[in-house]
C-alpha cells in the first residue's frame, strides 16, 4: 500500500512536468499542425540557463528563494525569445511547404540546439545546487518533499493561467479562431502571424518552467535531457488528443502516473523477469493500446479527414 501511495506521489510530480511540456507541443500543433520536435531542446535550454543563473548568484548573499525566482524568470525570458526566434527563422518560411518539410526543419533545429548547448555547457552532467532546504513529509508510510509540492502547485497555477488566457482573453479567442480556420480568422481581422508567434512564446515559457522543475527535482541536468523528456511529453499530448489543451494536461498526468506505477510494480508482476529499467516502454505501450481503440487520443475530437 505504501508503495502505491509513494508511486502515485512520484507519478503526479512527474506528470505535472510532462503536462507542462505537452502543452507546448499541443498548442503549436493545434494551431499550425506541426510537431515541434525542437520543443524538448527548448526545455533543456531553459534548465541550463536557470542553472547558470543560480550558480552564478549562489555565492552573492541573496536569499535563496530570490535566486531561485531570478533563475526561473531569466530562463523563462530566454526561452520565450528562443521560441519566438525558432518560429520566425525556421518555421514561418515553410508554412505552405509540404507537410514533412517543417518536420525535418524541426529535427534539424533540435540537433543544432543540442550541440549549441553542448558547446556552451559541456558534455558532462551538471549538478544543480540545492537552493531550498528539503523537507520531507510523511504520508501513510510514503514520503514527499516540499520540492514536489511546489512543483505540482506551480504547474497547477500555470495550467489555470493558460486556461484563463485561452478562454477569457482576446488573444486567446484569436488563438481558438486560428486553430479552427486560419483563413477565416484572418478575414475577421486576426493577425495570424502574431497568434502563431504567441503560441510558440507561451509554449516555450511553460517549457522553461517545466525545465526548472526537472532540474530542481532530479538536481541534475544534461545537454541530451530534452530529447527523452520531449518524446514523453509529446506522447502525453498524443495520448490526450493532440491539439487539445485539457487533453495534454490529462495525458501528462496519466503518463506520469502510469510510468511511476509501472516502474514500481513491473518486477513483482513478472516475477522479476522484467526489471524497472523497462520503465521507458510503458509510455509507448500505453500509447499504442490507447490509439488502437481511440485513434485520435483520449479526448481528441473524431475529426474527418484532413490532409
Amino acid at each position: 500500500m505504501d508503495t502505491l501511495i509513494q508511486q502515485l506521489i512520484n507519478g503526479v510530480t512527474l506528470g505535472a512536468v510532462y503536462a507542462l511540456v505537452a502543452l507546448g507541443y499541443t498548442m503549436v500543433y493545434g494551431i499550425i499542425g506541426l510537431i515541434n520536435f525542437a520543443h524538448g531542446e527548448v526545455v533543456m535550454i531553459g534548465t541550463m540557463v536557470a542553472f547558470t543563473v543560480i550558480v552564478s548568484l549562489a555565492g552573492s548573499g541573496m536569499p535563496p528563494l530570490l535566486v531561485l525566482a531570478l533563475g526561473l524568470a531569466v530562463s523563462t525570458l530566454v526561452c520565450m525569445v528562443l521560441g519566438w526566434a525558432l518560429e520566425r527563422v525556421a518555421y514561418r518560411p515553410l508554412r505552405h511547404a509540404p507537410r514533412l518539410t517543417p518536420l525535418i526543419t524541426a529535427i534539424g533545429m533540435s540537433i543544432v540546439l543540442q550541440n549549441v548547448a553542448m558547446i556552451i555547457w559541456g558534455r558532462n552532467y551538471i549538478t544543480f545546487p540545492p537552493m531550498i532546504n528539503k523537507q520531507i513529509y510523511d504520508l501513510g508510510g510514503a514520503s514527499f518533499t516540499n520540492v514536489q509540492v511546489s512543483i505540482v502547485f506551480l504547474a497547477a497555477l500555470m495550467m489555470i493561467g493558460l486556461i484563463y488566457l485561452v478562454h477569457r482573453t482576446r488573444i486567446g479567442m484569436a488563438m481558438r479562431a486560428t486553430a479552427q480556420n486560419p483563413q477565416v480568422a484572418s478575414l475577421m481581422g486576426v493577425d495570424i502571424n502574431r497568434v502563431i508567434a504567441m503560441a510558440f512564446v507561451i509554449g516555450s515559457a511553460l517549457g522553461a518552467i517545466a525545465g526548472c522543475m526537472v532540474g530542481s527535482y532530479y538536481e541534475i541536468a544534461h545537454y541530451q535531457m530534452g530529447f527523452m523528456l520531449g518524446l514523453k511529453a509529446f506522447t502525453a499530448a498524443v495520448l490526450g488528443g493532440i491539439g487539445n489543451l485539457a487533453g495534454a494536461m490529462a495525458g501528462g498526468l496519466l503518463l506520469g502516473i502510469i510510468e511511476a506505477l509501472g516502474a514500481g510494480y513491473i518486477g513483482d508482476l513478472t516475477g522479476d523477469f522484467l526489471g524497472s529499467h523497462y520503465q521507458d516502454i510503458f509510455a509507448f505501450i500505453v500509447l499504442i493500446i490507447v490509439l488502437m481503440f481511440r485513434p485520435s487520443g483520449l479526448f481528441g475530437e473524431r475529426t474527418g479527414d484532413r490532409a
Binding site: 525556421a90 515553410l94 509540404p98 518539410t101 529535427i107 534539424g108 533545429m109
Partner: peptide
C-alpha cells in the same frame, strides 16, 4: 560537426522545400 549537419538540414528545407 553535428551543428553544421543540423544547420544543413534546416537550410536545405528552407530553400528547397520539396
Amino acid at each position: 560537426r553535428m551543428l553544421v549537419f543540423g544547420l544543413a538540414l534546416v537550410l536545405v528545407m528552407r530553400f528547397r522545400p520539396a
